[in-house]
Computed example of a mutant assay.
Amino acid sequence: MLYVVLIGALLIFWLVGVDRPKLKLEFKDGELIKHKGNLPPAFGHSCKEIAHKNPFSGTVKVYMTRAGAKLKFSKGIPNKIQQRIRNVFPHQGFKSHGKKKA
């Protein structure tokens, strides 16, 4: 009986505690060093261009919510760069899985 409770607790911890972004981009000194997930080619090219013109280090994560995609930036990325990445993000390429909030 105790093992059932432990398995349930581990399952709940995994569902809540594990970070599962749809897309993760890692930048270091103005270069895209690693990406995990489906990276649209135009978005990847735009991000590389932004990073090349204004070098920065940090991570960009894309999470899917009911309302659509949500971008999350690490603290190492300046606000101006964050806005430029938001401007080139293809919201149509990332479909939401739920109903849109009205």
Rank of each mutant, 00 (worst) to 15 (best):
R66T: 07
L25N: 08
L11S: 09
R20H: 06
K22L: 11
H45P: 00
K80I: 07
D29H: 05
G58D: 07
I7D: 00
K72Y: 10
Y63E: 02
N87D: 15
K34Y: 13
K72I: 06
G44S: 10
N54E: 13
Q83M: 14
H45R: 15
K80R: 10
V5L: 15
F73E: 04
P90T: 04
P21A: 05
E49L: 08
I7Q: 01
P41A: 12
P90D: 01
V4R: 14
S57D: 13
I50L: 08
P21K: 00
G37T: 03
W14C: 05
I7C: 07
K34H: 14
Q83C: 03
N38C: 05
A102H: 09
M1G: 14
K61C: 07
A51R: 06
F73A: 10
A42S: 14
F94C: 01
G68H: 09
A69K: 01
N54M: 05
R86W: 04
E49N: 09
N38Y: 12
D19W: 06
L2I: 11
L39M: 11
N79Q: 12
S74M: 07
G8S: 15
V16K: 06
T59G: 01
K75S: 11
A42V: 12
I50Y: 02
F56M: 14
P40T: 08
H35T: 09
P78E: 12
F94W: 00
K48S: 11
E31A: 12
V88Y: 03
P90K: 04
P40I: 02
F89S: 08
G44K: 05
G58I: 03
Q92A: 00
G8W: 10
R20N: 09
R66D: 15
K100T: 13
H45Q: 13
L32K: 09
V5W: 12
V60K: 02
S96C: 10
P78R: 11
G44A: 07
G98E: 15
Y3G: 04
M64K: 13
K28T: 06
R20D: 02
K101E: 05
G17S: 15
V88Q: 06
V60D: 01
G17K: 11
F13K: 03
T65F: 07
I77M: 04
F27L: 15
K34G: 06
T65S: 13
S57T: 15
A69E: 03
G58P: 08
D19S: 11
